[in-house]
């Protein structure tokens, strides 16, 4: 039993959208066929993407957190999009848990997307089938690629390595360790979909200064205390009395 998934580390994601376009770039020429773009040079350009980065502001100035939030298919363990599909085009693979769409079976009824609370599926307006993140299933098992490149395009591209990829069922995998140790969580747990993709929260590093750290015995200011000897040519007691 294995379940491949992404773990997205919001602690380091800067929202650069590398994952967004590298995904599109890989997949538009992949087995899914092209990923169409409408009005690519006109008003309201819009197209099919498997992955998008959203931005949220948490809190009020000046205590505002800006959170960049990449989201693609979460490859739920209990994927609600699968049983609703009338044709079986939407399916979850036994061997690795990837949720896929068989484009030859898809009738384009969009019901699977309705059944996804995360808005992870996108209907391709020109291919007329439902599309979604495949975890680059055409890369990760491709023996012709070097092993280090058998990863989803978004993972390879991510400049902050905010995207970890691996088997969340394997307790020793990088992703499982990250989830366990860094507070990995799931989106909308209230629906029992058990998303396989997890998110790691922001973690803060703080510095605590103790008062006694401010001044140390070797404070360099001490070296600047100049105590010149008093001048010899000015009057002293020697000049006025002989005792």
């Amino acid at each position: 039993m294995s379940q491949l998934a992404l773990v997205i580390d919001l602690n380091v994601c800067v929202g650069c959208s590398a994952c967004v376009t590298s995904c599109k770039e890989w997949n538009t020429s992949g087995p899914a066929g092209f990923m169409s773009d409408d009005n690519p040079y006109g008003k309201e350009p819009t197209g099919t993407f498997f992955n998008r980065v959203q931005t949220y502001e948490v809190g009020c100035f000046p205590n505002t957190e800006t959170i960049h939030f990449p989201k693609s298919c979460l490859h739920c363990e209990d994927a609600p999009c699968v049983p609703v599909c009338p044709t079986g085009a939407s399916y979850k693979r036994e061997e690795d848990g990837i949720v896929l769409v068989d484009y030859d079976k898809c009738i384009g009824c969009k019901y699977c997307s309705w059944a996804c609370p995360y808005g992870a599926r996108e209907f391709d307006e020109h291919q007329k089938v439902m599309k979604k993140c495949t975890l680059c299933v055409d890369r990760i098992y491709d023996q012709s690629l070097p092993e280090t490149e058998r990863k989803p395009a978004c993972v390879l591209s991510c400049p902050t390595s905010a995207r970890l990829f691996g088997d969340v069922e394997d307790p020793e995998s990088e992703v499982s360790v990250a989830i366990r140790e860094e507070g990995g969580y799931q989106l909308m747990p209230e629906w029992g979909t058990k998303p396989s993709n997890h998110y790691l929260p922001r973690r803060k590093t703080r510095l605590h200064i103790h008062e006694d750290e401010l001044v140390r015995a070797d404070n360099p200011l001490k070296k600047e205390e100049r105590q010149p000897s008093a001048p010899v040519d000015e009057p002293t007691l020697d000049d006025s009395t002989s005792w």
Binding site: T28, S29, M35, S36, D37, P40, H126
Partner: peptide, 16 residues
Amino acid sequence: KRRSWQGFFAGMFTKG
């Protein structure tokens, strides 16, 4: 030329 829509597939554009 500007396409009203495009489907890019490895250097080829589909219709549009």
